[in-house]
Design a protein around this nucleic acid. Structure first.
Length: 457
RNA sequence: GGCGCGAUAGCAAAGCGGUUAUGCACCGGAUUGCAAAUCCGUGUAGGUGGGUUCGACUCCCGCUCGCGCCUCCA
């Protein structure tokens, strides 16, 4: 039985879908004005893992991850780079797709773009106005009135008065309450706009997700996810909008993944301490990055450093080494087997991937001991539920670095042949010389019963 | 200032009121021409002060330190 930590109730709860056997899940995706960084990688991988486990549990999943393709920063960037907004956003959507594919992230069932849902947003704003929750401000914006929505703050655990006390930000003059947020921004010079009953303008950020989720998943759905930093105000505002407009429950389970940190500080655009996914992939295999993310629990902070990725690479190599020795097929998992049972128990406990990974290592040790191809297949198939270990072990272990490496595979093979000849005439000095030469070039030679193999250190 | 999260061995990271987490690194042994890989084994933990308990890393309270949100952010 699956349990999920619900940010709304602050406890692990048994997961009961609204419609038996079916899950509707929405995750806040990217605002596409720049390359994805490691924080984005974490959201992509974490909710991909969630989605995979829900399906593996026999549930039919409808997974929606949106794309914000209109927003202040996008407009600013497009201006700066002298290109149209759609040129800019489609470029970065393409980069995002490439990153996601590299990380083994499966396509969501829907990837709605905000600009394609303007009518739904207008409809929603209209409902909010009719329900007395939205008002036209002096400057021409339409704002949401937080004081009129009872329960504002229930997700983030904040009270309006505490928030007001902590207010340190310049307040827009048109707001009745400093915490009111904009639903529709009136058109400004040189910015894109759409017609609306409230005049030409463009949507506020928060209304986008409310509109896209209700259009694709209905007004009440099972899981809503995103990064921890979206809990307030973004998700709080989504609740206010969606429940305020439809007068009913919005989301049953809220899931928030922890931050990626650098030197114990949050990695973020505003702090400027971020690493892009493609930067990391210049040095590390994408599967290493995926494994690095999944070997920590999704709610814990994840500290990034080269050292930790090196560590993850070594660990993943251990799993692939077991499969190199005893090839495993991708098969139906034997859920009665001990490791599979532990794996399921871990995953059912709020997606405890570190525990699930530990089971994979136990299983790998068992494979090494027993040389059982059944267990190797079990290992490969279980890991597949996390999107890991699906490649040919040799391909992983011998993968050529982006910089090309110091030595080509062909050169390695020819040196190994030379070394084999030296070994056969028992000229160990020559054989060891070649091995040392390879070692210096980052290649580890391993002699086995069936000859020598190599891998990158 | 308000609200919240965390502190586990050299590093990373989980579960668990009493019995080996796991990975990397390290040490001893087996194996190997020597290595590597693998196997076997040892060692290194639970911020701090109290409390509850037969027994606490695990529950409760205080303290210290770290982090996050309160503003765009995954």
């Amino acid at each position: 039985m699956l349990k999920i930590y619900n940010s709304l109730t602050r406890e692990k709860q048994e997961f009961v879908p609204i419609t038996p056997g079916r899950v509707r899940m929405y995750v806040c995706g990217m605002t596409v004005y720049d390359y994805c960084h490691l924080g984005h990688a974490r959201v992509l991988v974490v909710f991909d893992m969630v989605q995979r486990w829900l399906r593996a549990s026999g549930l039919e999943v409808c997974y929606v991850r949106n794309i914000t393709d209109i927003d202040d920063k996008i407009i600013k960037r497009a201006l700066a780079s002298q290109e149209s907004i759609s040129e800019l956003t489609s470029r970065f959507i393409r980069f995002m797709d490439e990153d996601a594919v590299a990380l083994g992230v499966e396509k969501p069932d829907h990837e709605p773009r905000a600009t394609e849902y303007i009518p739904q947003m207008l409809e929603l704003i209209g409902r909010l106005e009719k329900n007395g929750l939205a008002y036209r401000a002096a400057g021409g914006d339409v704002n949401f009135s937080v004081r009129k929505f009872p329960g504002y703050g229930k997700l983030s655990g904040k009270s309006l008065d505490d928030l007001r006390a902590g207010e340190r930000v310049e307040v827009d003059a048109g707001k009745e309450d400093p915490l009111d947020f904009v639903l529709w921004k009136h058109a400004r010079q040189g910015e894109p706009f759409w017609p609306s009953p409230w005049g030409e303008g463009r949507p506020g950020w928060h209304i986008e997700c409310s509109a896209m989720s209700s259009e694709l998943l209905g007004t009440h759905f099972d899981i809503h996810g995103g990064g921890q930093d979206l809990q307030f105000p973004h998700h709080e505002n989504e609740i206010a909008q969606s429940e305020g407009a439809h007068r009913g429950r919005f989301v049953n389970y809220w899931m928030h993944n922890g931050f990626v940190r650098v030197d114990d500080e949050k990695m973020s655009k505003s702090l400027g301490n971020f690493f892009t996914i493609r930067e990391i992939l210049e040095k590390y295999d994408p599967e290493v990055l995926r494994f690095f993310i999944l070997r920590a629990h999704y709610r814990s902070p994840l500290n990034y450093s080269d050292r930790h990725l090196d560590d993850a690479r070594q660990a993943l190599s251990r799993l692939y080494t077991a499969l190199k020795t005893v090839p495993g097929a991708i098969v139906a998992i034997d859920w009665n087997e001990r490791h599979a049972q532990g794996f399921r128990k871990a995953m059912d406990d709020d997606f405890n991937t570190p525990e699930a990974c530990a089971l994979l290592f136990d299983l790998a040790a068992e494979v090494n001991r027993s040389h059982s191809s059944q267990l190797a297949s079990q290992l490969r198939s279980l890991a597949g539920l996390l999107g890991l270990l699906q490649r040919d072990p040799q391909v992983f272990l011998q993968a050529t670095p982006v910089d090309g490496g110091e030595i080509s595979a062909a050169r390695i093979e020819s040196l190994l042949a030379e070394r084999m000849a030296a070994k056969q005439r028992r000229d160990f000095a020559a054989a060891d010389g070649i091995r040392n030469q390879l070692r210096a070039a980052g290649i580890v030679v391993e002699d086995g019963a069936g000859g020598s193999t190599w891998r990158r250190a």
